[in-house]
């Protein structure tokens, strides 16, 4: 659904970086590793939160 607000493991706030990450690494063609480094998401627990996320709001919204 929506990106998790915090990292499940360490509790760091990662939600705020999602839109930029999505735009640059998923829609754009930048290297995800570089984008995460630039966003300051250092730990691998936080990085997997963004790398493995899929937005599902558009998928479920027709079935309200």
């Amino acid at each position: 659904m929506m990106v998790p607000v915090r990292c499940f493991t360490c509790g760091n706030v990662v939600g705020e970086h999602w839109e930029e990450f999505d735009e640059r690494a998923n829609q754009g063609d930048e290297d995800p590793q570089k984008v995460l480094d630039e966003l300051g998401v250092d730990r691998y627990c936080c990085r997997r939160m963004l790398v493995s996320h899929t937005d599902l709001v558009d998928v479920v919204s027709p079935y309200q």
Binding site: M2, G15, E16, D55
Partner: peptide, 11 residues
Amino acid sequence: ADENVPIIELK
């Protein structure tokens, strides 16, 4: 403390 955390996308 952070202004840009998405809560929910509204259609």
